[in-house]
Write a protein that binds this DNA or RNA. Structure first.
Lengths: 218, 218
DNA sequence: AATAATTTTTAGATAAGTCTAAAAATTATT
DNA sequence: AATAATTTTTAGACTTATCTAAAAATTATT
């Protein structure tokens, strides 16, 4: 059996490993998990013994296939629950994360397959992140950061990088949601802020915002 | 903060205390929790320090108001989730318990109040047990055991005492569900088995079955 | 290449929850 | 009312996951 703590470590390693980093460092995990490096070393040894990660002293860890399977399943559960909370229980997209963090650890194959069907097999969660299917396959969409879009591009919002409450509330306030169409009008050389047009309205967006919003160029 | 283990002990004490027993014994809790009496003593001391139970050595425990509140909230969550599983995710009534045991520990007030609304404020779970409302009030219905019904009584099934998979499957097999109407035709003096009539069909039911099925005499 | 800075690991301690075995208290039996 | 049986508690040990502080290894800097 796998414990809740083990699941959380595996999930953290998965998320850190996604960005091209193959040997996830002890310190990175400690930061992500808000714990101490020494605790991470202990846990990493345990995960290694159980076959969830490959680990060599001082070299960081990489998920094994077995570990990756578990991570993807947790991500799948997390994202399906997020869809449920937004679609069925009227949560807003900045409220779902904490609750989904709890729900993702519920163990029942039937629960998840039925939930998936009940939600009509959604492919993306409320933040635009893809939901792995039953087999663990993840559909990648060719999204770019709004900060990388070119002047004149017509775009459609497809996801967020940061899903903190503050960022999502900012988007809500400015009528930016997934599916919103916008045009990149101007980039200010000095601070890389950009002017975008949503419907008729113009809006100036800081580089930091543009760096956390994914779009698809149409 | 209250731990998962503490919640489970409080729930067990609540269920044991319901049947008129005021000072729930260490051994009874140990049996219910499938653990050892010594573990119970340790935990009961902790629950007492935290103000969830009144406890005097060798005298058993009673839930305080604070403890009862927690217990009722867990019961509410458990039963709401059971309704969700049956009504929305097509679980059968013998499959819901295990999963609800996990879901009942999810902490989010909004989740439960929204789930309650989504399910249209159900008053009973799939086994006929009442669902406490937001304030912890529990509506009692005047149900009796089928074994206590008199010959000639017209009854309607309103609940089960035992909700083990075996018992519920037996009921399914014999077309007995909540809401099913039946008439008590005959009681066999020797073994207290009774003959009931459901629609046109007659069925002989052992005393053990009749002792676990709640009915309302109409 | 030697030293400094950083990262990682080890060693030992702590808290939660459990266990076994033995002691103490309660309840039942003669 | 004394003894037997049962229940409950205590004492000490174990596991999981955490921590601090110090040691070891790696990486960066001069």
């Amino acid at each position: 059996m796998i414990t809740l703590t083990e699941e959380n470590y595996i999930k953290a390693i998965y998320h850190l490993g996604k960005y091209g980093i193959n040997n996830v460092s002890t310190n990175a995990i400690a930061k992500e998990m808000e714990t101490k490096a020494s605790s991470v070393t202990d846990m990493v040894k345990k995960l290694s013994e159980k076959g969830y990660v490959d680990y060599k002293k001082y070299q960081g860890v990489t998920l094994t296939e077995k570990g990756k399977e578990i991570a993807i399943n947790i991500v799948r559960k997390h994202r399906l629950w997020e869809v449920f909370l937004v679609e069925k229980l009227n949560f807003s997209w900045d409220e779902v994360h904490e609750v989904a963090e709890q729900l993702e650890h519920i163990k029942s194959k039937k629960l998840i397959s039925q939930l998936d069907a009940f939600l009509e097999f959604p492919t993306h969660d409320p933040h635009g992140d893809p939901i792995p299917d039953k087999m663990g396959h993840i559909k990648k969409i060719d999204k770019i950061l709004l900060s990388e879009a070119k002047i004149g591009n017509d775009c459609i919002c497809v996801g967020v990088q940061d899903s903190s409450s503050d960022f999502l509330k900012y988007l809500d306030k400015n009528d930016i949601a997934l599916g919103t169409e916008l045009k990149v009008c101007h980039r200010e050389a000095f601070d890389n802020s950009i002017t975008i047009k949503i419907k008729a309205k113009e809006l100036i967006i800081s580089n930091m915002i543009a760096n956390n919003l994914f779009v698809k160029v149409s």
